[in-house]
Amino acid sequence: MADDSTGALTEATENAALDDALTAEHTAVWGYGVVGAALDPTAQGTASAAETAHRDLRDRVVALLTERGADPAQAEGAYALPFPVLSAVDAAALAVELEDGVAAAWVRVLDQAVESSTRELAVTALGEAEVRAVSWRTAAGRTPVTTPFPGLPAS
């Protein structure tokens, strides 16, 4: 991740963090397929919109890393679920996990980035992830539905 000898921020640290964010976005795209399948038809539009947002972001990061000559992370064929998704509440809880995972990855990008344009991308992605997470926490019956520090570990 960071330059091991100095801990300094470089384009390499930024690209590595972006690649981790890409991995999280791949996971979110896959995971929202599971989320949507477990929701009532009337609620599937929300999951579909979220999946589209993550797909667009994924494509943007792939293009950015490719442009820099990096080798973007590939999506896996499947991912193990953290818990069975058997109901709409389970689906919402999974969506919370997806958005929280993405948020952590984008905070990491903010921490490691050297380009302001990358930070702009990251802070936008982070904010959008948290807005979706609030909606899913509500659907999952979580309280509180907001968090003061999305993406940062509890201190």
């Binding site: 921020l9 903010l110 807005v131 907001t146 993406g151």
Partner: peptide
């Protein structure tokens, strides 16, 4: 956040996102 770097950028970005969530609620 965009004009900061490292931990300060991460903190400001995280707080901004938290407030986006509050706005949504």
């Amino acid at each position: 956040c965009v004009g900061q770097s490292g931990a300060r950028a991460a903190l400001l970005g995280s707080i901004a996102a938290g407030l986006r969530g509050q706005d949504g609620r």
